[in-house]
Design a protein around this nucleic acid. Structure first.
Lengths: 340, 340
DNA sequence: CTGAAAGCGCTTACAG
DNA sequence: CTGAAAGCGCTTACAG
């Protein structure tokens, strides 16, 4: 596990105590010049590197952040992880990741085993007793749970959903469908509320179908949408994956986007601008979110080098591309089918 | 960092030594029934949990795996990470991730600081001196470097590339383009070799354009392809991202896939089957790869609970979808432009 | 400026 | 079956 050579080896080679070696390495200015040179030479000669595990135990910290996410395979997290890791690394912290669905016992241990200084929580569905039982600084990111005693970072999901509705309404859609996230999920609930508010504010018709953010949920929703009478001409999906699944299945069903139906997504994942059609979506600035969470946590740990990071404006924006357009002017298709 | 209560607290509450508490927890059968009950009661009463950091130092291990990847934001890794984490968790190991481009000094430390028992390397471009300097069990996954002294897990990239060419040739394409990865990259080199071999074996024309696996590289390649005379009718991209970028840009340029040009990707990322058109691609079983790497590393650490995991066949396969078809029979478009 | 000693929180031979 | 003691590899008051 550790490299072979320990601090005592360096000390004896340099003819000093381990205390001096330790100081020469971590606070060189407190050691006499000649001694320091001797120690450094011994360090070089032996290839010594401090054993972080031992140092951490002694200093009662872990120099490590733990990221907890509901599904590590979800590509939505990639950019967030990379941003967190960058900030953590800049603050001298390692990053540990774990799926938050590993089972209660393992989960409890994670926050208790002295191997993390703080936690970034991307899951709002963990038992609050577990979360609040951890005695570690925590930040909730993107998802949240009112019951967790930890600050939150994320976008205004209701406002974001309203933006999607606004966009569709501005395009003159009078009937819109929302393919939401799963019932228990805070993001799903909040976006759904924003959708309802937006629809009410514009006086247009709104329907909701529960999905689960996935490609397949979107595809499934497209099949259900095709059976609706009249068919909503605008669709707001609670995730880009869902939107892409919806559009893809529409194509299979013979409907074109945006000719037959307009679709707006949520997240602005990397592929969104390269999809065919390029996806109109609500942009969630994932890198900024990850960075902000990491910085906030570093602050909580009292390790901040700089002053307050100055809240980077983490506001959702709508990016309009090619998957939305005014509703079809020719209602023949709908009319024909309705008359059958 | 640690929970408040330590093993001594439990010991004194139960009226036993810390040694007994330790045994009662980790080897209950070695402790008298009455004593054990008393200890367990004290554990319950205090809410004691062992401090993993202390245990690790004592036992000279870290109970942790380190994953090193060239860019954590790359969504290709998501499923690999999740598979590794699952296997690691099953073996009682935590997982630490780091970008492998964090700078030489930090990188060296990572393998030396006693906080990882083993490493999964997804980057073949790290200085071999750094890698071989680590005294930890390692596994190379997907990417590799001959100079690293560590076993490799991955698919046969040359064979995979040949499969792509075979498919195109079977469809009667006589001229194919390969959009490769960057020059220094092993995967790029190996796939390019497979491409060349395949093309030679089938006696068809092959051209190569260097890219870098990204969406934008694919888009850029599409622009270059459009200027080629004659235009290859089949294209093999070294990654799905690249292929999607290529197809997307083709659409912008007024070319249809597969009507004007057939495109095959590499990886079979999650979106591949939902893209429009659904992408024909070489499937790289990322979950199996991650799992195999984690298992191999666990074996190397001597922690395997089960016998040999039995090599799960990690063979690439081609999955044929809608982005490939026979070349256009009508050569008018090419002819017309050529005549200009 | 430097060293002897204690201690971070555990586990594990070694005795009994 | 249980305990006293050493020790994992460091750092850090405390003296001098």
């Amino acid at each position: 596990m550790s490299g072979r050579v320990r601090i005592v080896d360096v000390a004896s080679l340099a003819g000093v105590s381990t205390a001096t070696v330790s100081r020469a390495l971590s606070a060189p200015e407190t050691v006499g010049r000649a001694t320091r040179d001797r120690v450094m030479e011994a360090v070089r000669a032996t290839g010594y590197r401090v054993n972080g595990a031992a140092r951490d135990l002694r200093q009662q910290r872990a120099r490590s952040l733990l990221i907890l996410a509901p599904n590590l395979a979800n590509t939505f997290f990639s950019r967030i992880f990379s941003a967190i890791q960058e900030e953590a690394s800049a603050a001298g912290l390692a990053v540990q990741i774990s799926d938050s669905r590993i089972g209660r016992e393992k989960l409890v241990s994670l926050g208790y085993d002295g191997r993390a200084d703080g936690i970034v929580l991307l899951d709002g569905a963990i038992d609050p007793d577990v979360v609040n039982g951890w005695r570690l600084p925590m930040i909730q990111l993107c998802e949240w749970n009112e019951a967790y005693r930890a600050p939150r970072i994320g976008i205004d999901n209701a406002a974001a959903a309203r933006m999607a509705v606004e966009h569709l309404a501005d395009l003159c859609h009078r009937s819109v469908l929302h393919v939401s996230g799963p019932d228990g999920n805070v993001l799903a609930v909040t976006r759904r509320e924003g959708f309802s508010d937006g629809v009410a504010a514009r006086g247009i018709a709104g329907t909701t179908l529960a999905g689960d953010f996935t490609l397949e949920a979107g595809a499934c929703a497209a099949r259900r949408w095709a059976e609706l009478r009249p068919r909503p001409t605008g669709v707001f999906c609670a995730s880009d994956e869902c939107a892409l699944g919806f559009i893809s299945e529409c194509a299979a069903l013979g409907f074109g986007v945006p000719d037959d139906v307009s679709v707006v997504g949520f997240d602005d994942i990397d592929f969104a601008h390269r999809f065919l059609p390029a996806l109109t979506t609500i942009r969630q600035p994932r890198e900024a979110l990850g960075r902000a969470a990491a910085k906030a946590l570093v602050n909580l740990l009292g390790l901040a080098q700089v002053a307050d990071p100055g809240d980077p404006a983490i506001a959702p924006t709508i990016v309009v591309r090619s998957s939305t357009a005014p509703p079809p002017t020719d209602d023949s298709r709908v009319a024909t089918i309705t008359l059958d």
